[in-house]
Amino acid sequence: MTTISVKVEFSGGLELLFSNQRSHAVTIPSTDPTDSAPTNLQYLITYLRDNLLKERVELFVENETVRPGILVLVNDTDWELEGEGDYVLKDGDEIVFISTLHGG
């Protein structure tokens, strides 16, 4: 099975849910095992939830996507410009999850 490696970073307090570690190197299959489609950001979110998340799933995902108030950057660009969950991951991508929920 071919794999790709992406760098995942958590910020804004989200790192607390992931072993209090901000940066993670994640290796995932290059195609989704269930439907053989190229692995996308949606797959990564599910993968992180199932494999890296230590506690309180509801603080990261909601309705199969990141919960409102969490920003996602793909190579330093807002994922809203990249198709959100449909963005197809490439080897070496940097994905950042930032929580805005720390308040004012």
Binding site: S11, G12, G69, L71, L73, I98, S99, T100
Partner: peptide
């Protein structure tokens, strides 16, 4: 908040 988060990042 989103703009704040981007600024902070």
């Amino acid at each position: 908040m989103k703009e704040c988060a981007m600024w902070a990042w």
